[in-house]
């Protein structure tokens, strides 16, 4: 038996909206630690890793580990039937082929119940090596979203070069109408961590990425006020949105390498 009760349906809506365009279906892995998911996009360039720790739910019950194959687009549509502040309860029997979703209004005067069919999904679980990153940049998530949008829409760029030095982080593109760059300097004050740009750097690093993936990752912006970018030479970028202390959505993106 699996049961997980989440105080705000809104969180699940935001998570599904953040990942459903990149991966349309995935296995939700349920264990005593919580709910996790890993999936690659169809072109094998990016990967989504989700963790919702059990302590983010009240209660959370998982008698034995379960793998629930879910069509994320369908689940996102179903979640739209919940009001943002509805209490979400997910339940599944041990050998069930359905996931039950229950939305309860805060005043407890409305209860919606849905049964979602599960599917068998062949998924390759990849081992992600532990990496010491050359640079970890933390910035407001809205700023990251804005930069990705402006460089894509404004310049028509396909590839973005991200160069990180102690002074700041520079995003550059060359596109159909010309070229451009946006540089963010490290902010002095750390009074407001969510509004700061903080660079932790062992050595300068420059990498090239497909901009459209970064724009897709930025759909997770509502999940967190800040985002971190972890970069090392010739390894995938990690873009992480933390959900308070209860979990994260991480996106991994393979770089473009010189021929």
């Amino acid at each position: 038996m699996f049961e997980a009760r989440l105080a705000q349906s809104n969180l699940m809506k935001k998570i599904l909206d953040a990942i459903k365009d990149l991966i349309t279906e995935a296995n939700l892995e349920i264990s005593s630690g919580g709910i996790s998911l890993q999936g690659m996009d169809s072109s094998h360039v990016s990967l989504v890793a989700l963790l919702m720790r059990s302590d983010g739910f009240s209660p959370f019950r998982c008698d034995r580990n379960l793998t629930l194959g879910v069509n994320l687009q369908a689940m996102a549509k179903l979640m739209k039937c919940a009001s943002n502040d509805d209490i979400l309860t997910m339940t599944a029997e041990d050998n069930s082929d359905t996931l039950n979703l229950q939305f309860e209004s805060p005043a407890q005067d409305k209860l919606s119940e849905f049964e979602m069919k599960l599917m068998d999904i062949d998924s390759e679980h990849l081992g992600i090596p532990e990496t010491e990153y050359d640079a970890v940049i933390r910035m407001p998530s809205s700023e990251f979203q804005r930069i990705c949008r402006d460089l894509g829409a404004g310049i028509g760029g396909e590839s973005v070069t991200i160069a990180c030095t102690k002074e700041g982080v520079k995003f550059s593109v060359t596109g159909s109408v010309g070229s451009g760059s946006i540089t963010l300097k490290q902010t002095g004050s750390v009074d407001k961590p969510a509004e700061s740009v903080v660079i932790n750097m062992a050595q300068p690093v420059t990498l090239i990425f497909a901009l459209r993936y970064l724009n897709s990752f930025a759909k997770a912006t509502p999940l967190s006020e800040s985002v971190s970018l972890s970069m090392s030479r010739e390894v995938p970028l990690v873009v992480e949105y933390k959900m308070n202390d209860t979990g994260y959505v991480r996106f991994y993106l393979a770089p473009k390498l010189e021929d």
């Binding site: 094998h44 990967l47 992600i128 090596p129 390894v235 995938p236 393979a254 473009k256 390498l257």
Partner: peptide, 13 residues
């Protein structure tokens, strides 16, 4: 020019 790498070349199955 630059070429898009696959994640599979970094992460093991």
């Amino acid at each position: 020019g630059s070429k898009q790498a696959s994640l599979m070349s970094f992460f093991k199955k």
